[in-house]
Design a protein around this nucleic acid. Structure first.
Length: 331
DNA sequence: GAACCGTGGTA
DNA sequence: TTACCAAGGTT
């Protein structure tokens, strides 16, 4: 992992934010490109927000990118561009919660502050046989105290990474590799054959199914795109104008035109279906259907809509699915 | 406490 | 296809 080859607190910070709910293999190319594009906190602070989002394109949870830049601007202004070691100051930065505070503090500054992520929760709940819901904030606090108490006088960063790596490579959610686990003889769950029962995780709510339709409207060398308002879903990113359907696209095909007129004031006739994609994200399971539009330009353009020249698409940030559509159009 | 916020991989 | 998971944070 490239962020292990540096002691630059900024690089470690970036890696920890990217790694939130995101796997290592996914993060590596993004991290390398990011550090090349924004090598310092000051560069990130001064960058255009659209370029920041473009570098994050496809990683998901885009508020992480927006918060990272906002925090960089705060650090540039209030701390001379140097990430503060003080816990209260670190925690006050947007995007740095309890986990990231511990990870940055221990790995970048060698401070004995624990980083409790999903891996650590799993390892510790098995090791000490904690029969409590690990999604519960009180349980997380309890685990954090345990891990904090186990810090040695040195190598705090290595210890943090060891806890997480043990969970990621050995103490797996299903079929843990207890036979090669260095804590095998100490593990309460292993001793009592409870590794299948621990940790206890509450079920999360069922994912909703959301069906949307997007329209590709092209005029000469420009595409009609919707810029998502900041603060709303996909804030700051650009999409093909998209509407939500009340149900499966096959049953609601006729309503699409009216929905686009109502939402954006554009009259379009979704004629032949160009392509259909589907993608999923945490709460929704969205099925995106993209249509080739025949239609007229609206007289008065919706405030979120803009005609974007083809040549600018490579600088325009899209969510992953729309980025793939752009890819198909350009190639 | 619960809902929300993306994406890709896997069983 | 569905469900769940992965180095979480904010509202």
């Amino acid at each position: 992992m490239p962020w292990r080859k540096t002691k630059d607190p900024y690089a470690i910070w970036v890696s920890e934010i990217m790694l939130q709910q995101t796997q290592v293999d996914t993060v590596i190319p993004y991290f390398n490109r990011w550090m090349h594009t924004f090598p310092t906190i000051k560069k990130l602070a001064q960058a255009k927000d659209e370029k920041v989002l473009k570098m994050w394109e496809g990683l998901g949870y885009y508020s992480r990118a927006r918060n990272l830049q906002k925090a960089a601007q705060m650090v540039a202004k209030e701390h001379g561009g140097k990430l503060p070691k003080d816990s209260a100051q670190l925690s006050s930065l947007p995007g740095i919660g309890p986990y990231s505070l511990g990870a940055i503090s221990s790995i970048a500054f060698e401070l004995p502050i624990a980083a409790v992520d999903g891996n650590v929760l799993r390892v510790v709940s098995r090791l000490f046989e904690i029969h409590k819901n690990i999604k519960d904030k009180k349980t997380v606090d309890e685990v954090r105290e345990i891990v904090t108490a186990l810090f040695s006088d040195k190598d705090r960063g290595d210890m943090t990474q060891a806890w997480m790596e043990l969970g990621a490579t050995v103490c797996l959610p299903t079929n843990p590799k207890c036979l090669i686990c260095p804590l095998q003889k100490l593990c309460a769950a292993k001793k009592k054959n409870l590794t299948d029962k621990l940790p206890i995780v509450s079920k999360r709510p069922k994912t909703k199914k959301v069906v949307t339709a997007a329209i590709i409207l092209k005029r000469e060398n420009t595409f009609l795109l919707e810029k998502r308002p900041l603060g709303k879903i996909m804030g700051g990113l650009w999409l093909f104008p998209t509407v939500e359907l009340p149900g499966p696209v096959n049953k609601h095909k006729q309503e699409i035109s009216a929905l686009f007129e109502k939402e954006f004031g554009i009259k379009v006739k979704p004629a032949n279906q160009l392509l259909t994609l589907s993608h999923s994200y945490t709460v929704h399971r969205a099925q995106l259907n993209v249509f080739l539009a025949q239609g007229t330009t609206p007289k008065k353009l919706h405030p979120d809509l803009n005609w974007i020249n083809e040549s600018r698409l490579k600088e325009t940030p899209f969510p992953a699915v729309h980025a793939k559509i752009i890819d198909q159009i350009l190639n």
